[in-house]
């Protein structure tokens, strides 16, 4: 554990808390992509099956349980409790265009051809692109509420901080995992355009609005 890794995890935690609070307080999930949230739930389910086979630490277990539980809680709020506020007309990204290539890639490019390892690899590749339906939704509607922007910023920062963590680990432990690193870089790059808008607009008190 190093400071970048901890900051990354805290940023991830914060993103989820912001999202759940936004939905709960406003009693609405307007502007949030249910498809991205489904992909995140699938990501954590596939990755954290090792909860039962691989004990790392109490921290690790608590975080994994939190990520799985909150991803399903988000889906419950969006598709059941506050379904009437879900903006499904704008949430139209075709997820099969992500799931199919990600599945094939996980079967071909992995560390070991075993059930758990392929599920882990699948989750790493899927997480990298899971935010695309959400970013597509923002570009389709041309805007995002400030709270949604803060959520996206915290979520994007998480993988960026993990990249610093991987650089740190490479120099201090000679540890590196190419699959995680490459997917993590792709994931972070997808946020670059959003980061730019966040710094130039949202932080100056303006709403995130794309040019028409």
């Amino acid at each position: 554990m190093n400071v970048f890794r901890l900051a990354g995890d805290m940023s991830h935690l914060l993103a989820i808390i912001i999202l759940l609070l936004k939905i709960w307080k406003t009693r609405s999930c307007a502007g949030i992509s249910g498809r991205s949230q489904l992909l995140f739930a699938l990501t954590y389910t596939a990755r954290y099956l090792d909860l039962v086979t691989n004990w790392v630490s109490l921290y690790n277990t608590v975080m994994k349980v939190f990520f799985i539980a909150t991803s399903y809680a988000t889906i419950y709020l969006m598709y059941l409790k506050f379904k009437a506020t879900y903006d499904s007309n704008h949430d139209t990204f075709r997820v099969e265009f992500l799931l199919l290539p990600v599945t094939i890639l996980a079967l071909v490019l992995n560390h070991e051809f075993s059930f758990m390892e392929i599920l882990w690899t699948f989750s790493i590749y899927l997480e990298a692109v899971a935010i695309l339906p959400q970013l597509f939704m923002v570009s389709k509607t041309g805007e995002a509420e400030s709270i949604t922007s803060h959520y996206l910023f915290a979520l994007g920062s998480y993988r960026l901080l993990y990249i610093f963590n991987w650089i740190w680990r490479y120099y201090t432990e000679e540890y590196y995992d190419l699959i995680a690193i490459i997917a993590g870089v792709v994931q972070t790059v997808l946020y670059c355009d959003f980061f730019y808008l966040y710094f130039t607009k949202v932080l100056k008190g303006k709403k995130l609005q794309l040019p028409a």
């Binding site: 991830h12 090792d50 975080m63 990520f67 070991e112 993990y162 995992d177």
Partner: peptide
């Protein structure tokens, strides 16, 4: 498998 990379990250 001991050679499998240890998954200590989240």
């Amino acid at each position: 498998d001991d050679d499998a990379p240890k998954k200590d990250e989240l």
